[in-house]
């Protein structure tokens, strides 16, 4: 009871800071396991359709273009580095460095979202938004225009996957904002920086999702040259 009276960061129902930190870490990883399964559903749909209609997948993926997606991948990897450095700074109790790295991470995250917005706008221009303004790609190989419904499914999945990933990014940015404010108000110390670490785990996880989304969505059609 009295052992932790000195440390205001330890909540009343925990015996000590160690227990609190371990609980938080385990809880966070359980939450991430949930997230894995959430995305697993989308990946399953993706894989199944790719297996069923590979030609649609290749040709529709080709339409996405890899430049912006590639830039975004690099941006996210950089943001993961800055986040890791931020946690490192927190561990060493360097407040200024921590805030700096957090801001850098947020800046990179915002860049990612900005690029994503440009991409979404392009898809809108190209009439590739399912349900709103979708136009089927006309001939693949021949002069007979026809509808292949799976074309729309590809873009639908694209929007679902990147959209849900984007929502996670937005959530991540909000969390980092809170963490940065807490850091500014000296809430953390070398013995208590669990929230920074948890935010880091979350951020890296969102990065990992993108590590899979990028090859699956963008690179699938990269070898496609337009011929049969």
């Amino acid at each position: 009871m009295s052992a932790h009276a000195h440390n205001p960061a330890v909540l009343h129902h925990f015996a000590d800071a160690e227990q609190q930190k371990e609980s938080a870490t385990l809880g966070m990883w359980l939450f991430l396991a949930t997230e894995v399964l959430l995305f697993a559903g989308l990946f399953l749909v993706y894989t199944l359709f790719r297996w069923k209609v590979p030609y649609v997948w290749v040709k529709e993926s080709y339409l996405l273009g890899i430049t912006l997606g590639g830039i975004n991948t690099a941006v996210l990897i950089c943001s993961s580095l800055t986040m890791a450095l931020g946690v490192h700074a927190a561990q060493e109790g360097k407040k200024k460095a921590l805030i700096g790295w957090l801001l850098a991470t947020m800046l990179l995250g915002a860049t990612f979202l900005g690029v994503k917005a440009i991409e979404y706008h392009e898809h809108w221009e190209h009439h590739k938004v399912p349900g709103l303004n979708f136009t089927y790609t006309v001939p693949y190989d021949n002069a007979h225009p026809y509808k292949v419904p799976e074309q729309q499914v590809f873009h639908f999945l694209y929007f679902c996957m990147t959209g849900i990933h984007g929502l996670h990014m937005v959530a991540g940015l909000s969390i980092l904002t809170v963490i940065a404010i807490m850091a500014y108000r000296d809430k953390f110390s070398t013995t208590y920086y669990t929230p920074v670490e948890m935010a880091g785990l979350y951020w890296h996880f969102v990065d990992i999702v993108w590590v899979f989304l990028f090859p699956l969505l963008y690179l699938t059609g990269n070898h496609y040259t337009g011929g049969h």
Partner: peptide, 20 residues
Amino acid sequence: YKPNAKIAAGYAGIMPTYEG
């Protein structure tokens, strides 16, 4: 319905779909 899904070898995928 999906003539281009599995095209018989030696032929081009020119058949239109009759879906719908």
